[in-house]
Design a protein around this nucleic acid. Structure first.
Length: 177
DNA sequence: GCCACCGGTGGC
DNA sequence: GCCACCGGTGGC
């Protein structure tokens, strides 16, 4: 079970349609007590919960309209692509945009930010360089406001077609011996 | 020439 | 073994 894996009680899910960019994302959080999944209506709300999840874990009772006795909003199953976020990802700085790019083989996400001037960055070091080149932004955000950690893609959700011999979900090493 | 995308790898 | 990071490049 997910919950027993501990720690990451977060998930966003993307319904995997045939095309990988037509994703309708749902956001859910797992209650720390009953371990049921609760949908979070907006990305903004989800980001806010995720931002301080470790210090401030989530429980059903945080939402006055639900309790642990209510059935889960959604079940962890293979009907969707489940993606488990890392906790405590800083809120995306104003005028920037955080984008996840799922690779065709479902092996991982590449994370990029679009900076206020339209420039794309793909790592913390690139953020650092950006701030050196554009010191004017230093009062708006710092490197620590960016997170490039990729959420975990639950392997059993990866379509079989992408798990075949040559494409990879989990990489198989030499199978000699 | 740019950029979306992918493969490889060093450091942990 | 994982994953953050970066180099390379094919297609536009």
């Amino acid at each position: 079970m997910l919950a027993s894996g501990g720690l990451r009680r977060f998930s966003s899910m993307e319904k995997s349609k045939s095309s990988r960019d037509s994703t309708t994302a749902l956001y859910a959080v797992q209650c720390g007590k009953c371990f049921k999944w609760r949908l979070i209506p907006t990305k903004e709300e989800y980001d806010a919960i995720r931002e301080s999840f470790i210090e401030d874990p989530w429980f059903c009772e945080k939402n006055p309209e639900v309790s642990c006795d209510d059935p889960a909003d959604i079940e962890y199953d293979t009907s969707r692509l489940w993606v488990i976020d890392k906790p405590n990802i800083p809120k995306t700085p104003p005028n920037t945009e955080r984008n996840l790019h799922l690779r065709k083989d479902f092996s991982k996400f590449d994370i990029t930010y679009i900076m206020p001037n339209g420039k794309r960055v793909r790592s913390s070091t690139e953020v650092e360089r950006f701030l050196e080149a554009h010191p004017g932004y230093k009062d708006q955000f710092s490197v620590s406001d960016f997170s490039f950690t990729s959420p975990k893609i639950m392997e059993e959700m990866v379509p079989k077609s992408s798990r075949g011999k040559d494409s990879v979900g989990r990489k198989r090493k030499n199978e000699d011996g």
